[in-house]
Amino acid sequence: MAISREEFDLIRSFVHEHSGIQIGEGKEYLVENRLTVLMVQNGCKDFIELHKKLVADAGPLRAKVVDAMTTNETLWFRDASFFSAVSDFIVPQLMEKAARQPQVRIWSAACSTGQEPYSIAMLLDHARRKSRGQQAPPLEKFQILATDISPSVLVIAAAGRYNQLAISRGMREAFLERYFNKTGTMAYEVDPAIRKLVTFQQFNLKNSFDGLGPFDLILCRNVLIYFSNELKAEIYRKLHARLTPDGLLAIGASESPRGYTSNFEQVMVGGAALFRPKKGS
C-alpha cells in the first residue's frame, strides 16, 4: 500500500506547522520511508491515525516525527567558491574584529552533522597560524554557535568523529592532517582545540531568536529553501535583528532575501554574494 494523497497532505502540513519545513510535491516516498516505523510502533494502521495521535498528544512522538523528517546531508567546505571567500576575505575581517572587540560570534544555523561549523573553526585557526601568532587574537575570542532542529544529528556533530567517506566529501589533505586525530576504529576525530570553539544546541528556526548573538557572521545556507514564503520573510527579519551592524549573512548561492525583506544589501566578497544589514535599517 503506497501513501495516499490525503495521508501525505496531513503529514506534510503537520511537519510544516511544527518545523516550518515544507515537504515538496513528489516526496511521498520520504514520508513513507521515514515515518512508517513510527506509525506501526504507535499502533496506527495508517498515516491518518498517526496524524490524529500527533495532533492529540504533544509528547515525544512529535519530536520524533520532526527529527525523522529533517535529517539532511552535508559536507566539508560545502561550495568551494563560498569557502574561498571565507578564507580569503571573511576570516581576515573577523581576525581584525577580534583584535578590536572582546568576542567574535558566528552562528551556523543548520549545522547537521557539524561539517560547516568545524570548517569555519579550522579556517580561523589556519589564519592565526599563517600570521605566525604575531598579532593574531587568541582562538578563545571566537565563539561558534551551531544549531540544528534535529537532536540526532547534533549527537554526531558534537562527537566530532567522521569516517573515510565523510572525510572524502570535501576535506582538504592538509587540514585532515592538522586538525584530525585518527582513532582506532578507522575514524578521524576533530582536534579538541577546534571542537572547543563550537557549541552545539538544538534549535528550531521557527522559534524566537531572543537571547542569541549578536553575530558577526551567520551561516544559513540552503536552509530557508525548505520554508514557506511567509516563514522565510519572518526568519530573514529575525536574522537581520541578530546581526551586528557590520555583520554578514551567508545564504545558499541560489537564495536571496529580496522579495522577503528590504533590510539587507548584497555585498560581493571574493566571488561570493553575502548580505549585510542596510545602514539605518
Binding site: T71, E73, V155
Partner: peptide, 19 residues
Amino acid sequence: FSQEEMATRILEAMGMGGA
C-alpha cells in the same frame, strides 16, 4: 540511505538519538 540518515537511525534504534 545517506550516511547521516543511517547514522541517526542507528542512534535512535539504540535509544541514543536525543529526540
